[in-house]
Design a binder for these strands. Structure first.
Length: 478
DNA sequence: TGTGCCGGGTT
DNA sequence: AACCCGGCACA
């Protein structure tokens, strides 16, 4: 540790270069790399393995190359992988690849066929072609598309079953070869059929709120990732989580869910589970994803208004609390400090929301339970924080207090809220109120989660300034 | 042993 | 003032 520090000091100019355990482990193995360049893991861990499983003949080599690149190149492997990536796992991957290459001529045709027919029943036309070269060309094209598509969209088992039915019912129909246009038409037709299946009344049974952020996030999150697909044909599948017929088309699809995950958050478990479910046709309820809601809660003292959109809450703060009625459209970002994003599992909405004021019209039957104003406040987290912010720590004195102190290390005291006099008074009151230990002794250690715990060393950028400076955490105050 | 953060040094 | 970190206390 000490050595690392010394090395860091001498060799690295910026502390940004310092990294957590991941970097420490990687020292020497990989050239040091600014943490800021680190991006959310692409699920190399599981994805690579699954990809490896799924990829066909000509991809084996590519996968290998990709791995090489990612290892030596800029992309830093996710922490989870960095520890094992070079070890047995990698060796076994390689071995698998080699084995595949060797056995490829024997298995590839059948393998691809079954693979496709199982996973992509909508690609019916593939089954209709009888000539092998056609099959080959079509396969290589389609499989690549297919795998992209598969990676980006999760599908439900039910849907798969339905699709399979479609395939099996058509499997012996078209005797003639089809032109590319016809093939495309087939795809479109298949897509339409599947779409109609997947949007059956059953699927839509629960009321979907045509509401702001939910729809927004659905649109954004749901489709954006599939933009990497090579073809537009698949856009119909963008709302990927229409999978489960027992649940509504999710406002927060799998993809949008991803966008809310913190980079370091290991999502392999989930994705692996999904993948395996896709592969093994084990229907599982995807309650978890479908039931997530993102709400925005006003942190203004004694307000606690909850809205479903950031814009809404910003406007609320601007107009109500900041008194900027005239400039309701203008935002200097100040509102950000006064609201927090909360992600609610609708299963536990009763728990989470009950402490919030049911103000938003967009909230369906907001439950109410005895509010505990004194201990209600959640940890202050800027809206940019993507971490799951359930009402965990409720020990901090007040929201405003947190909000203010969160920036205490970044700006001078003169930067205290330029807000109206009322708020100023409020905040002062609040500031003086917390019964911090002021008796000269070291204050008792906080039990709540701190930035380090919450974000981890690898996301040190996300820590509050104080934490970064080894000062008392200003974000998760106990 | 890992974490939080005080106290003090450096830029 | 911003930043950094040694080192101690605590869990």
């Amino acid at each position: 540790m000490q050595a690392r520090r010394l090395a860091k000091r001498s060799s690295m100019g910026s502390r940004r270069l310092s990294a957590g355990p991941a970097a420490a482990q990687a020292d020497g193995a990989r050239p040091p790399k600014p943490e800021s360049a680190w991006r959310p893991p692409r699920r190399e861990g599981s994805a690579a393995a699954v990809e490896e499983e799924d990829e066909d003949e000509d991809v084996v080599v590519e996968v290998e190359e990709e791995e090489e690149e990612e290892e030596g190149g800029l992309g830093s492997p996710p922490p989870a992988l960095s520890a094992h990536g070079k070890g047995p796992l990698r060796a076994s991957l390689k071995a698998t690849s080699i084995k595949r290459e060797m056995t490829f001529p024997a298995f590839h045709q059948e393998d691809v066929k079954t693979d496709i027919s199982q996973k992509l029943p909508d690609q019916q036309f593939l089954l209709f072609t009888t000539k092998e070269e056609d099959l080959k060309t079509a396969e290589t094209k389609k499989t690549s598309r297919v795998h992209e598509y598969e990676k980006e969209n999760t599908r439900s088992v039910c849907l798969l079953e339905q699709k399979r039915k479609v395939v099996s019912s058509n499997i012996d129909v078209p005797p003639a070869r089809k032109s590319p246009e016809e093939l495309d038409m087939d795809k479109v037709t298949a897509a339409m059929v599947l779409t109609s299946l997947s949007t059956s009344p059953l699927v839509r049974s629960p009321p979907i709120r045509p509401n702001e952020s939910l729809n927004g996030s659905w649109k954004e999150g749901g489709f954006v990732p599939s933009s990497t697909s090579s073809s537009g044909y698949w856009s119909w599948n963008a709302p990927s989580d229409q999978s489960n017929p027992s649940t509504p088309s999710p406002p927060l699809s799998a993809d949008s869910f991803k966008t809310f995950r913190t980079p370091s958050q290991p999502d392999d478990g989930i994705d692996e589970a999904e993948t395996s479910n896709l592969l093994f046709d084990e229907p599982i309820p995807r309650k978890r994803k479908n039931s997530m809601k993102v709400m925005f809660k006003c942190l203004w003292k004694n307000c606690g208004k909850v809205l479903s959109t950031a814009a809404g809450i910003q406007k609320h703060i601007r107009t109500i609390h900041l008194g900027r009625v005239g400039e309701s459209d203008y935002s200097d970002g100040e509102e950000d400090f006064y609201y927090t994003e909360i992600r609610l599992n609708t299963d536990s909405v009763a728990d989470g929301l009950s402490s919030l004021s049911p103000v938003s019209p967009s909230l369906a039957s907001p439950p109410s339970f005895p509010t505990q104003d004194a201990i209600r406040p959640e940890t202050s987290c800027a809206k940019t924080e993507t971490k799951l912010m359930t009402p965990l720590s409720r020990s901090a004195p007040t929201n405003l207090y947190l909000v203010h102190t969160d920036h205490a290390y970044q700006v001078s005291p003169t930067h205290n809220r330029p807000a109206g006099s009322g708020e100023q008074k409020q905040s002062h009151t609040v500031l003086s109120s917390p019964p911090r230990v002021a008796f000269g002794l070291r204050k008792p250690r906080g039990e709540g989660k701190k930035c380090r715990k919450v974000y981890g060393m690898e996301n040190r950028d996300m820590w509050c300034t104080a934490c970064r400076w080894k000062k008392a955490c200003q974000r998760f105050i106990d």
